[in-house]
Structure formats: structure tokens, C-alpha cells
């Protein structure tokens, strides 16, 4: 299966270990990644969209038109890119007048949005196209005994009329994926709470992160598993900052799903880049069986 990855900004710039883990684990699921040229920032669904909504939509449409031209489905790694590109598709599909205005602008650079390229987050492509069996078959070292507190993040699921990923209140996609790599998903009270990154307040995000981490600590999970780089930025360094303010030490490693997948496929540790995280996962990785 050929897929065109849309990497966005945060992953290739701030967390390239996530890109490395993705690029190395997907071929083991029978996927050929075809990099397309000419993408820009999706653009970001919080700040850019708040500054210039029509510009945001038009730049997103331009990115989509690149995949249309190549005739390949786009696969996203970041919940923010997923939100922007899927919402752009939705808005341009529901409002013909808006689509005409966007295409009027795209014509300036000889492009057109036609709405023919699909966009899905990589975990959705795995569940719906590749299949959980392929994940299980790719596993050489099941992550047995590793308990993973799930964090969904907001933009993979909501709004469900656009995302069409899962039940926004009772999702199971991440639990199923974590189970497929041999680990044990751990439910906790705050697994659907927002990470707070999109809020321009100083105090509120601190309380939100504190709430999430207190909830995970109560669950006694070994680590947190997630799929969103923005949530990761709130949690990896964030738990240290929040812990200092609150006088507690959480030390809960945050692991991106494709790093879990890579570990389970027996990839070397450096290849999935866990050493680049602030909160180290050495202890839980050391407890894993060696690859078969």
C-alpha cells in the first residue's frame, strides 16, 4: 500500500524521533511511504486559524491539492494536521460558495482543490486499511507486562461529524492498538481530558496537566501512550514543570504510539529515539523481553 505522509511541523522539527519511529515501523506493515514535495505547515488549527481563517483554509486546500495531483491518500502523524486537513475537506465539501472563493485564490498559483484525496491519521489507516492482524504479525517482541495509560487528545476524535474516527465518548482505537503490540492499556479517569495547550492562560493548563498526571499515577500505569505531538509537548517537559509547581514528582514516560510499535517490532532503541525524551523510559524498556 502506497501512502503519502504529511509530517507537518512539530514532528519533523521538535520531535523527529516520532518521524523516525513512524518511517521505520510502517514498512513492516507493508506500507510504502511516498514523500511528496511542496507541502507547507498544514497550517496550524489554533493560532493561524484564529488569525486568518480564510487564509488557513486556502493554505490547507493547497496542501490537499498536492496529494490530489499525485493521486495518493495522505496519512497524517499529528492530530493538529489531521484536524486542519480534515476540517478543510469538510468545509469545502459543505459550502460550494466557500470552495469557489478558495479556488479563486488557488488559481493564482495554478492550483485547484477538487476534493479527491483522502486524509487520515496513521492510526486510523492502520485500523481501517492495514488491519490489526498486520500489526500483530509485525511484532517480534510483544511489550508484555508494560501497562500504558492512554491519552487520546482532542483532535483525533472531535468533532466526530468531521473526524469519523471513533465514538468521542467511548473510543477504543488506541486501546486496540496498544493491545495489538502486546502491552496492556490502562483506563484512567482523565484519559479524555484536553492537554490544555490551546488555552492562552497561564494557570489553567497547569491544573489540567496536574489532573491528568494525578489520574495516571492513581492508575499505576508504567507510561503514557499518545498520538499527538502537541499533547506530548504539554506532558514530557510539562509534567516536570507542573510537578515543580505542585511539589510532586510524576516521572511518567510519554511514548508516541509509533515508538511503541517500533519497540514491539524489535527496532533498536536509538531508532525510535526514546533517549531524546525528558522523562526517560529506560526502566520499563529494560524489563521487556529481548526480540525473538
Amino acid at each position: 500500500m502506497k501512502l503519502a505522509p504529511f509530517l507537518g511541523c512539530m514532528i519533523p522539527i521538535k520531535y523527529p524521533q516520532m518521524e523516525a519511529a513512524f518511517r521505520r515501523s510502517m514498512p513492516n506493515l507493508g506500507v510504502e511511504l511516498v514523500d511528496l514535495e511542496g507541502f507547507t505547515c498544514c497550517p496550524d488549527p489554533i493560532y493561524f486559524k484564529a488569525r486568518d481563517a480564510l487564509g488557513w483554509l486556502t493554505i490547507a486546500a493547497r496542501n490537499l491539492s498536492i496529494a490530489e495531483e499525485a493521486g495518493l491518500p495522505l496519512v497524517t502523524l499529528c492530530s493538529g494536521c489531521t484536524a486542519t486537513l480534515k476540517e478543510a475537506r469538510f468545509l469545502l465539501g459543505e459550502d460550494e460558495e466557500l470552495r469557489a472563493r478558495v479556488n479563486e485564490r488557488l488559481a493564482r498559483i495554478g492550483r485547484e482543490y477538487r476534493g479527491t484525496a483522502s486524509v487520515e491519521h496513521a492510526v486510523v489507516v492502520i485500523r481501517d486499511e492495514i488491519g490489526m492482524d498486520a500489526v500483530r504479525e509485525s511484532v517480534k517482541r510483544p511489550l508484555e507486562g508494560m501497562s500504558v495509560a492512554i491519552h487520546y487528545g482532542c483532535h483525533l476524535l472531535k468533532p466526530s461529524q468531521i473526524m469519523h474516527v471513533d465514538d468521542a465518548d467511548y473510543p477504543s482505537i488506541l486501546e486496540d492498538l496498544v493491545t495489538a503490540v502486546g502491552a496492556t492499556p490502562v483506563a484512567h479517569q482523565e484519559e479524555l481530558l484536553c492537554c490544555g495547550k490551546g488555552c492562552l492562560d497561564d494557570e489553567m493548563p497547569v491544573e489540567m496537566v496536574y489532573s491528568i498526571f494525578s489520574s495516571i499515577r492513581n492508575s499505576e500505569a508504567d507510561c503514557m501512550g499518545l498520538i499527538c505531538p502537541t499533547c506530548f509537548s504539554s506532558f514530557d517537559l510539562g509534567q516536570i514543570v507542573v510537578g515543580r509547581k505542585k511539589g510532586v514528582k510524576f516521572e511518567i514516560p510519554i511514548i508516541y504510539f509509533f515508538q511503541l510499535l517500533g519497540l514491539a517490532q524489535g527496532l533498536p532503541l536509538e531508532d525510535v529515539g526514546l533517549h531524546l525524551h525528558k522523562v526517560k523510559a529506560d526502566d520499563i524498556v529494560a524489563r521487556l523481553p529481548s526480540p525473538a
Binding site: P12, A20, T40, G55, R62, R105, E270
Partner: peptide
């Protein structure tokens, strides 16, 4: 440097001019 150490290709250069063509002056930064 981090990307290189991870064995990743250099970051592509996005076509900024093409992107700016799409924006109306007055609507943005």
C-alpha cells in the same frame, strides 16, 4: 543535527512564496 543523528533526511524547504500568493494583504500578518 538531531535529524541527522536519527538518520532522517534534511528538512524540505517549503515553497513560502507560493503560500503567500494565497493570502490577501490586509487579512493577515
Amino acid at each position: 543535527k538531531t535529524r541527522e543523528k536519527l538518520g532522517l533526511d534534511p528538512l524540505p524547504e517549503p515553497p513560502v512564496d507560493e503560500m503567500l500568493e494565497l493570502l490577501d494583504s490586509g487579512s493577515d500578518e
